[in-house]
Each structure stands twice: as structure tokens, then as C-alpha cells.
Design a protein around this nucleic acid. Structure first.
Lengths: 130, 130
DNA sequence: CCTTGACCTTCTAGTAACGGGAAACCTTAT
DNA sequence: ATAAGGTTTCCCGTTACTAGAAGGTCAAGG
């Protein structure tokens, strides 16, 4: 398969596939005589793995770790779980932060009448008024 | 005040202050004879405003809009509120996305024993096993 | 055989919002 | 006078790509 077919099948763009190759997330693809990249079913599976992990918010660096654990038939599942737990803590922190912000903004927005008048508690707050 | 003093007082780094000037978020600072930037109390207030808005997750572009509304004594509070409501929708979307991911990862992590054995439902999932 | 259009190749530049660090200049204190 | 510490500009690096340019390749149709 060439890169376009793989892109269509995996949902990873050709640009991204080349990018992943350039940063060594995936090994360099085989080339046809004319220089086109050529992929096997195994490469497609790897890209599915990457897409899934990226979709769950893992950074490319984390995906690289996960992939290397995936390829190591002797890995300890504890290592994988540790990465996932770290990501979960990260997510919990982000959700908490966003909820805090949401609470603040919700209160400010509710106190702003939001019409043509210039009076605005939101801007007053940002400007430091109490 | 020097840039360093302003940085200390506002919590915005000198680097960021120069950056904000470079992108015209704030007007160019006055300069002393020798070229040092010189700030007034008003500049400090503006930076407090920026810091507050950035801390609530508004992009620099949004902060620029908010600042210009803040400076316009005739603005309609509705414009401000619209920006905040848009940000709130954005936050709701992000929280929902993160909660979805969290649910998925939580389930996967709970099914992984996380010890020295290689067997790992997390990697199985990423690899496409059902 | 030639052309056309859809692919493919590499390369560069841009994105958001700065942080790091270099080289050179200024200020303040001793 | 000199040392320490602040400031200046400038360029690179960060994340994970996307956009686009210039040019080679492949398959189909006339």
C-alpha cells in the first residue's frame, strides 16, 4: 500500500505519517524503486495503535513509550499502567482547573446583564475591582 | 518602574511583557535615555488585567478584544458577555472530552493488574483487540 | 506516444505563547 | 574601577502537526 491508501484506512493523514517517520515514532518505510513509501499490514496496525493512543490524549512521546512496551513481549504490565495512571492524574488536574475557571466565569457572566449598556462586572473583575 | 519591578509586581515575566509589546497587545513602553523600558502604574494595571484574563484561559487574541472593550467606555456589556459565553462553551466541550477519555482510561487501567506480568488489556485495546 | 490528473517526493514556513540563552550595554554599590 | 546584577536585541526550541511550493511518478484515455 502506498501512503495515501494507508492514510485513508487509518485516518492518519499522509502528512502525519511522514512526520511520525521523521521523528522516529515509526521506522522508515520501505521504498519502491521510484521512491514511493510502501506499507505492510503491520505498519497499518501500528498506525491504528498510534491513532488510538493519540485520540486518548497521550503525547507523541508517551505513544513512543507505549509502542515500545507493546513491542516488548516481556514488558511488565505495571509499566503500562503507570503511564496510564499518570495520564489520569493529569486529566483529573485539568478537569479540576477547567471546572474552577468555569465556576468563576459562570458567576461573572450571570452578573453581567449583557445588553447595550457599558456597565460590566466581568471587566470590573478583570480590572481588579472588588 | 523597570521591567523587572513590573514583572515582580504583576507576576508576568519580563519575557512575556516584551512579547506582549512585540505583538501589540500592549503599546510600546516609554524608554529612558539609555533605552530601558519605563512603566507607569497604569501599565501595571493593564498587565494585571492581562494576567487575570490569561489565567482564566482566554487566548491572547481574546485578551486583546477584552482589553479593547475595557478601554472603550461606551462598549456594550453584551459584547463582553458573548466572549465569555463562547469561552464557557469551549470549556464545557473540553471538560466533556476529558471526562470521556478519563472514563475509557479508568476502565482500561482497572482491568490491568499492573504487575510484572506482560499481559495487559490496555495495550490489547490500543492494538485493536476486542 | 502524449497528455492529463491524481499521486508522490522533499523542503520551508507557520501555528500559540512564550522560555532559554548569547552578546553587549547600563546601573548601582563598594 | 570593578563586580554584580539588570536590561537590550536576537535567534532557537518547544508540540504536533498543516499549508504550500516545486518537481517527479503512475494509470487511464485519446
Amino acid at each position: 500500500m502506498n501512503i495515501g491508501e494507508v492514510a485513508a484506512e487509518t485516518g492518519v493523514t499522509a502528512k502525519s505519517i511522514r512526520y511520525y517517520e521523521s521523528i522516529n515514532l515509526i521506522p522508515p518505510a520501505e521504498r519502491t524503486e521510484s521512491g514511493y513509501r510502501h506499507y505492510t499490514e503491520r505498519d497499518v496496525q501500528t498506525l491504528h495503535f498510534i491513532k488510538r493512543a493519540r485520540g486518548l490524549g497521550f503525547s507523541v512521546a508517551e505513544v513512543a513509550e507505549l509502542l515500545s512496551l507493546y513491542r516488548d513481549r516481556n514488558r511488565a504490565s505495571g509499566e503500562v499502567k503507570a503511564i496510564v495512571e499518570a495520564r489520569l492524574r493529569d486529566i483529573d488536574g485539568k478537569i479540576a482547573e477547567l471546572e474552577g475557571i468555569r465556576g468563576t466565569l459562570r458567576k461573572l457572566a450571570d452578573r453581567c446583564h449583557g445588553d447595550d449598556r457599558p456597565d460590566c462586572p466581568i471587566l470590573d473583575d478583570f480590572a481588579g475591582a472588588n
